[in-house]
């Protein structure tokens, strides 16, 4: 007997915010309902197969005008890696000055994606 599962989503591709339901049969998407346009189906498919997020966070700065600098993943990483990414940044320390775009951590969690600074911090 096939294992049928239903999952609910609110599509965020536009302000309409459709409530979209995906039906999975044995883990495969078999039906998507509730979406007004194809973007809804696309959004849900992506969320079910390869959800990704840009992570923004902070790392400590040594010798800077501020104790921390804001950072982001240079592009989106797998959603499941968000906490591991934050953990990886726990031990990261950069020295001032820091410039927007500076790589503070290469290839975070083996994603192939770098974490880069999003603010400037002057040295003091």
């Amino acid at each position: 007997m096939a294992n049928i599962e239903k999952k609910e989503f609110v599509c965020i591709r536009c302000p309409l915010g459709c409530n979209v339901t995906a039906t999975l049969t044995d883990g495969e998407i078999t039906e998507i309902t509730g979406n007004t346009c194809p973007r809804g189906a696309d959004y849900v498919t992506k969320e079910l197969t390869d959800p990704r997020r840009i992570v923004t966070s902070l790392v400590r700065v040594e010798g800077g005008a501020l104790p921390v600098v804001s950072v982001k993943t240079a592009s989106d990483i797998p959603k499941g890696e968000m906490f591991d990414c934050a953990k990886a940044l726990k031990e990261t320390v950069v020295s001032a000055p820091v410039r927007i775009g500076d790589v503070v951590l290469k290839d975070v969690c083996g994603t192939g994606i770098d974490v880069v600074a999003t603010a400037n911090v002057e040295a003091v």
């Binding site: 840009i54 923004t56 966070s57 902070l58 804001s70 982001k72 927007i100 999003t118 603010a119 400037n120």
Partner: peptide
């Protein structure tokens, strides 16, 4: 506002607050 989501209209890319200000 260190989160992303700024500037989609102005710069057609997704920036963080400090980057947008910069």
């Amino acid at each position: 506002c260190i989160h992303n989501g700024f500037g989609l209209h102005t710069f057609k890319e997704e920036l963080t607050g400090p980057e947008y200000a910069d």
